[in-house]
Amino acid sequence: MTRRLAAAACILAPLCYAIALPDYLVFGSQILVMALLAISLDLLVGYAGIATLGHAAFFGAGAYVAGLLSVHGWGEPLTGVLVAACAAGALGIPIGLLTARSGTLARLMITLGIAVLLYETANRAAGITGGADGLQGMEVWPLLGVFDFDLAGKIGFAYAWCTFVLGFILARFVVKSPFGLSLEAIRDNPLRAAGIGIPVKGRLTAAFVISAAIAGAAGAVLAQTTQVVALNVLSVQLSADVLVILIFGGIGRIYGGLIGAALYMGAHHWMSGLSPVYWQFWLGLVLIACAFLAPSGIMGLMAPRAGGRDT
């Protein structure tokens, strides 16, 4: 019951934000996109126990797929997100297969390597992606054929919120399924997991695909609501940011993504206002403090887990 309440709070909190801060809706959409990306990462890191430094690869792939679709004459947003999610999910298959058979350090290197490869490919293929200038000229059609994406970002926020809610509910279903339980078992003890009949590599690859698809959807929503795709959607910095968001919020608890994203992006906004060039100095301090004071993230402070029975 309390968990249902928490889930409802998580879904409704963004609406409170929209009412309280109507002038910051574009920023709010970005928070929601990052929260969804963090939730997708949590499936991998928190539940399946796969360390990755390249989650931006899926986010960026989704953003570019949605962006290219609308540049080349298909600006329908919903199908765009769907195609982007499928493309990112498909990208998750080879990467999942590669990482599923590797150890932790090798996983970090593989995921980092693939993200860097994609980044440089997009950088080099300027004719298609716009390279360092970003992908320009996106034309996104009205949502459901009715609602035009406005400059104030009202429709964009509503759209980002709906995607976030769907992604959040999907992730929640996954972690509460037998499949999700098997991911936790693999995380805790992969050898024993195989010993009770779990096909470990297959499950990890599947987890990768689901996570990648959600990340791709998040990227697509960012592209469609901002109507531009910058190269940094594929950057290592973004992969690191989303990992930090997850650590802030609390790993292995799907609510952590939203709380972490709101805090991190809020802090980013505030600190970069104080000191536009050196704001990361303060972020570094906060990170170290967080590691000592709240090693399980904000969610860990709010609801200490009793032996891992919560989500």
């Binding site: 999907l170 279903f173 996954v174 509460k176 399924s177 037998p178 499949f179 999700g180 339980l181 098997s182 078992a185 009770i196 009949g197 779990i198 096909p199 499950r203 599947a206 689901i210």
Partner: peptide
């Protein structure tokens, strides 16, 4: 968990356990 796997339900990823 072991029972789920034996019953071939381990791939069910959207059904509440």
């Amino acid at each position: 968990l072991a029972v789920f796997e034996r019953d071939g339900m381990g791939w069910k990823w959207l059904a509440p356990r």
